[in-house]
């Protein structure tokens, strides 16, 4: 059993190893408002943000660090002391250089400003991708907004790559080459599973035309926005099911019968 006094570490005059990221964690980041369907519209609706929010926000000073891999280092200041002991203010910039780093996952070079220290870390972690996708919170802090954006691109690409390729080539009715995007789609009222040679977006376009015709017959109006709100979340099978209910001719979007 342990006695009244116990130390997990031995005595040491130096502080614990590791950066504190004081400039990163002390930033004040505005809380993002959550919006739900049916809430009152805000005054301005911006274009969709393409990358996720970076938890630590952007740096307001030494803004160059927001546009490169600086590993959490910022401009520092201190005194230049002469032989006579006179002090004059000076500063030290991070040792940053413009480099093109190869991303194995994205299959392209990424040109950005990167500090010598981060270059070393990238080498240690075995490439840019590994550097970017490390899960430790210290790594997330040192990535900065630019690194966070790259991390999103890499992870998205990895996710895409992990999915099995379900598209296969086929011959269409008019003799041209096409791709089967959804195979074996079962639709009530139609014999046998269908191989659909249209992607989701084009399938939705087909449904829009059919749906609009149907609504017009009922004396109702439907615009693209309403359609999008109502049908955007349908799966390929559900879209085909709806098309079938309107008597859609599937021969034009299925491979030619051999």
């Amino acid at each position: 059993m342990l006695g009244p006094l116990s130390f997990s570490r031995s005595f040491s005059s130096t502080s614990a190893v590791g950066k504190t990221y004081a400039h990163v964690v002390s930033r004040r980041v505005a809380r993002r408002q959550e919006y739900n369907v049916g809430d009152e519209k805000p005054k301005h609706i911006p274009n969709r943000q393409l990358t996720p929010d970076y938890k630590w926000g952007e740096s307001s000073f030494f803004a160059r660090s927001n546009r490169g891999l600086f590993g959490g280092s910022f401009i520092k200041s201190g005194n230049q002391i002469s032989e006579m002991g006179n002090k004059s203010r000076r500063f030290w910039r991070p040792n940053a250089h413009k480099k093109t780093l190869w991303s194995e996952v994205l299959n392209r070079g990424i040109t950005c400003q990167v500090t010598a220290k981060v270059l070393k870390t990238i080498d240690k972690s075995g490439g840019l991708d590994n550097y970017l996708i490390k899960e430790k919170s210290a790594r997330v802090k040192e990535l900065g907004p630019f690194g966070w954006k790259l991390r999103f691109e890499v992870l998205k690409k990895l996710e895409q790559n992990s999915k099995p390729a379900d598209s296969q080539k086929c011959t269409l009715k008019d003799g041209s080459e096409g791709t089967i995007y959804f195979s074996g789609v079962k639709v009530d009222g139609i014999d046998g599973p269908l191989d659909i040679t249209l992607g989701r977006r084009k399938l939705l376009n087909e449904l829009y035309v059919a749906e609009k015709r149907e609504r017009q017959a009922l004396g109702e109006k439907l615009n693209g926005k309403q359609f999008h709100d109502e049908f955007r979340e349908l799966s390929a099978q559900e879209i085909c099911q709806k098309l079938a209910s309107y008597g859609y001719d599937f021969t034009s979007i299925t491979p030619a019968q051999v």
Binding site: V37, D39, T51
Partner: peptide, 12 residues
């Protein structure tokens, strides 16, 4: 009121 499309635009 906000629609689904608008909510998507407002959400990263």
């Amino acid at each position: 009121k906000l629609t689904k499309t608008e909510v998507k635009r407002l959400t990263p």
